[in-house]
Computed example of a mutant assay.
Amino acid sequence: MQNPERVELVRLRLGLTKIGFAQALGIDRKTLQRFDDGSDLSQAVLDRLCRLSGYPEDFFLKRSLEYPNRDGVSFRSLRSLTAGARDAALAAGALAFELDDWICDRFELPAHSLPQVNNASPGEAAAAVRSFWGIGERPISNMINLLEARGVRVFSLAEETRHLDAYSFWRNEKPYVFLNTAKTAEHSRFDAAHELGHLVMHRHTGSGHKSAEDEANAFASAFLMPPADLLAHVPRVRCLDDLIVGKKRWRVSVAALNYALHKIGVISDWHYRSYYIELNKLGRHIEPNGIEPESSQVWAKVLTALWRDGITLRHISAELSIPDRELSSLLFGIAAPASSPVNSRELRVVK
């Protein structure tokens, strides 16, 4: 029997309204409603759905998927996020659960070591997490790898919308972060630190209150650019070029560095606004001297280990009945090696 909830997930991933979805399938709204109420789609309509979505027929015959709990999800840029983009991202989360559970049946991934920091300012919370992890005040070379080493599941999103940056939540004592790879690398690093702030500061209080986003932003700034390290390496700023050169140490955007130095008093109000105006003239989506995007080490190791056992992303796709393009978009586009795999009997445990 066809599962209406799985058909609905595909509609959300396609970003279509119910009316647009029915039109794309060549049926009227009432036919789609009857399907939602328990009637099966005809084989002809099901075939059109498979062609439209790229999902195999088997996908629509399986049990319902688990979605991230909306009440527990922290969305960055929530105020400007459309319902369609939000729902498509949550549907991607449901697919990620399927993939993550499949991987966890075969691999032992790192358990999380995230402290919970309550009743502290964002700056204090950032310092507490750095202290708990023993990383002092040195710059963080790779945010994704740092999170993964502490047991955070980091997935990518290939959502073509400027309004969706990232989101995070807890599931079965596991922290999850989803990052939109359409952003600049500097933007994505800040997003990752921002979501870490939600995970450690707002797990029990929720992130729905008005100050939550500001708190997560302040956490990310202090976590990526500890104030003492900023003062030690950028005691003064004479022009925008000083910011462009200085940002390399912390691998952040010029705008983020401008904000952080203004907050600790290195940059005056007037210069802060002047540099912001200069940056806008360059283009809001252009980052001077941009860095290379970060990627996942954990998923690269998992895919490599599977490849050695003759299992490719296409095999996983067939087993889960999820198009490999969807899986690839969740795994930072990481592909298995191009040459033919060598078979072996046991999968390696990733530690």
Rank of each mutant, 00 (worst) to 15 (best):
L196F: 03
E137W: 10
Y167N: 08
S64Q: 06
L347N: 05
D105S: 13
N172C: 13
S188C: 11
A216K: 02
F75K: 02
I244T: 04
K174H: 14
M1S: 12
L279D: 00
P68A: 04
S295V: 08
L224T: 05
R238K: 12
L41F: 06
L306P: 04
I264R: 06
D165M: 12
A88L: 10
E66W: 07
L46F: 01
S253E: 06
A336C: 13
L90Q: 02
Q43A: 15
Y276F: 14
G206E: 00
N145E: 11
A166C: 08
L46A: 02
D101R: 13
K247C: 01
L330G: 03
S317P: 04
G290C: 13
W133K: 03
R189H: 08
P227I: 06
D40E: 15
L25K: 00
Y272V: 00
V302N: 01
K248L: 13
L327I: 11
S329Q: 07
A192G: 07
L46P: 00
L49D: 01
A92E: 08
E159R: 09
G123S: 12
L32F: 10
R236Y: 08
I311F: 05
A94S: 07
E148F: 02
Y259F: 13
A216H: 00
R34V: 07
V237K: 00
L109H: 00
N258P: 00
N180Q: 05
C50K: 03
V349E: 14
D324A: 13
E8Y: 06
L95I: 05
A255C: 13
F332K: 01
Y276S: 12
W250C: 06
A22V: 02
I140D: 03
F21H: 06
C104K: 14
W102T: 11
P115I: 08
H204Q: 14
H204G: 12
N69E: 14
A83G: 09
P226R: 01
H204N: 15
P4Y: 00
S121I: 06
R314S: 15
D101W: 06
A232S: 13
T312C: 04
S268Y: 03
N180W: 03
A85K: 09
L230S: 01
P56M: 05
N69D: 15
T181M: 10
H163E: 13
K183S: 03
V73S: 05
